[in-house]
């Protein structure tokens, strides 16, 4: 069965919402009633049918709207997509990974035909039908990473591996939670993670880096990260802080259910075969508090997580201003009953 792609917006009138299927599809991140940073890395193995983990690259009802929003961001700010010249092999590796994953998972929407280096790619939802030569950039209308990530939900970073470190040498980043590719480009793993509180001290980044350096082909891994966003905005970048920063002052006890969104990033990592680079995908999912409340276990748990969140984390994630209002709103959806372990609805 094909997906029904919604016509909706992430700016202006903010018509984005989740269908009941999309709510159940949402990768709820809290497996217990509290939250702290951890090296939460697990194999990126196929998950339950209908979940965000069913396929390696998830395409959902927001696909067309996400891609439209990306095109708007790029038109205003081309520096959201950057790639250093030595990353060209990794860019092509990414084209291969995304085209094969998308066409295998969603054959009704995407078709890839390969005949040696002569490739034919059909993307029906976006009305694209292109023949090109794999490895020859002049046969595509954009450089390879830009070409394919204009057609794939989520942000992407390509990390070069050298000298026992990872380097952010390439990326398509249009829907980030307040960090900047233009600032981070060329940085090493610990340099770009420098602003994160508490995690360095307990060795989380040492262990995570050691693990990533040893990542193998065909063994992708994933982790979840989360924050909150006011209004369903994909582009909460430092570059556009002047447009969204003030949104935080517009939250009132009456509008929490519609304005406050939990924003979860499903981050998956693959070792790329010919470049030996790593791709880090950051697929963001938004859900309104009102939508969270349709799953009783989730609203109970989110309430408790927000109540006990370490203040350093709340400050880093930028929640401080509306955290209490959100807790109060969620309190009405928490009867104090115990929650079952794990993330799935009861």
């Amino acid at each position: 069965m094909g997906l029904m792609f919604k016509d909706e917006t992430y700016r202006g009138d903010f018509t984005f919402y989740n269908s009941p299927e999309a709510i159940r599809h949402f990768p709820f991140p809290f497996h217990e009633d509290k939250y702290m940073y951890a090296v939460n890395i697990e194999p990126h193995a196929p998950g339950p049918k209908g979940s965000a983990y069913e396929f390696p690259i998830d395409v959902d009802e927001h696909y067309v709207a996400d891609m439209k929003d990306r095109a708007i961001v790029l038109a205003e700010d081309p520096l959201r997509c950057q790639s250093l010249p030595h990353m060209i092999t990794a860019e092509w590796d990414l084209v291969e990974l995304l085209m094969t994953s998308m066409s295998e998972a969603y054959p009704e929407h995407f078709t890839l035909t390969r005949n040696g280096d002569a490739w034919h790619w059909i993307n029906r939802p976006l009305g694209i039908d292109d023949e090109f030569t794999f490895g020859d950039t002049s046969t595509l209308r954009y450089p390879p990473m830009e070409y394919i990530t204009r057609q794939c939900q989520g942000d992407f970073c390509l990390l070069d591996q050298r000298d026992g470190d990872l380097w952010m040498d390439s990326g398509m980043v249009t829907s980030q939670a307040d960090w900047s590719l233009d600032f981070d480009i060329g940085m090493s793993f610990k340099e770009w993670h420098a602003p994160v509180p508490l995690a360095h001290e307990v060795g989380i980044f040492d262990r995570a880096l050691k693990f990533l350096l040893a990542m193998q082909i065909g063994r992708p891994v994933r982790r979840l990260n989360w924050t909150m966003t006011i209004n369903p905005r994909l582009d909460t970048s430092p570059e556009n802080y002047h447009k969204w920063g003030t949104d935080r002052t517009t939250v009132t006890p009456e509008n929490v259910g519609d304005k406050v969104h939990l924003r979860v990033e499903l981050q998956a990592l693959w070792r790329l075969p010919r470049s030996n680079a790593i791709v880090f995908s950051i697929r963001g999912y938004l859900i309104k508090m009102r939508e969270v409340a349709t799953i009783p276990k989730w609203s109970r748990r989110l309430h408790r997580v927000l109540k006990t969140l370490p203040p350093e984390l709340a400050a880093y994630k930028g929640l401080t201003r509306y955290q209490q209002m959100t807790i109060d709103w969620l309190a009405k959806h928490d009867d104090g009953a115990p929650t079952t372990p794990g993330v799935w609805p009861e």
Binding site: L84, M87, R162, A214, Q216, I217, G218, N276
Partner: peptide, 12 residues
């Protein structure tokens, strides 16, 4: 085992 590269080309 599936291949692993500890001696990669430096593409710069």
């Amino acid at each position: 085992t599936s291949p692993i590269n500890l001696f990669p080309i430096d593409r710069r």
